[in-house]
Simulated scan of single mutants.
Amino acid sequence: MTSERMLCPVCQVTFLLKEERVPGKRVVCPVCGAVLTLTEENGFWVLRRPKDMSPEEEIRARVENFAQLRGYHFNEMKEPLIEALLKKYERYGDFYCPCKIDNIPENVCPCLETRQGSVERNGRCHCGLFWK
């Protein structure tokens, strides 16, 4: 089994995939927590967002995975924030942070600011979904 660099379609960060490559295999991005599906396209392995997960299943799995990877927890605002993320998905096509005005790739949950350590510095992310 060889390691291969893979690009996460959610956070746009490459990471080393050390697991066996099997079409349809689920992989969790170690950077953002996204659940991804491994596929082979034109002789190359790529990761895609799963088509068989509902938007709610996708974002819940992502925030749970991210929190677990980083040792974060949630407070009583988790459910209203999940609902806000789902509304952003319905309106704009992705899970943009509910507290950010700009719906740009850097603001897809968990946003770049959060992935770069704002929870470590401030005790929580800007919108309050992730807590130290």
Rank of each mutant, 00 (worst) to 15 (best):
E90K: 14
P9F: 01
I82W: 03
L129T: 04
E40Q: 13
C97K: 07
G33D: 06
L69E: 05
Q68M: 14
N107I: 07
L16G: 08
K87C: 03
P23Y: 04
Q12H: 14
E113Q: 15
Y92W: 09
E58T: 07
C109S: 13
E64G: 05
E113C: 14
T39Q: 10
E57H: 09
A34K: 02
E120Y: 05
F95R: 04
E56M: 10
N42V: 05
K100A: 14
C109F: 11
V63N: 01
M6L: 14
P98M: 09
V35A: 11
L47S: 03
F74W: 10
V27N: 01
K132Q: 11
F130P: 04
Y96A: 01
C8M: 11
L85H: 01
N103L: 01
E40V: 08
K18H: 07
T39L: 10
V22K: 15
D52Q: 12
E4R: 09
E4I: 15
L47Q: 07
E19C: 06
V31C: 03
Y89T: 01
F74P: 09
P23L: 03
N122Y: 12
P98N: 05
K132F: 02
N107Y: 06
E57A: 11
I104V: 14
V119F: 04
P98V: 01
P9N: 07
K25P: 04
D102S: 15
L112T: 08
E4L: 12
L16C: 05
L36H: 03
C32P: 01
N122H: 14
Q116L: 13
E20G: 07
N75T: 15
R21C: 11
W131T: 06
M6T: 08
M77N: 15
F74N: 04
S118V: 12
E120F: 03
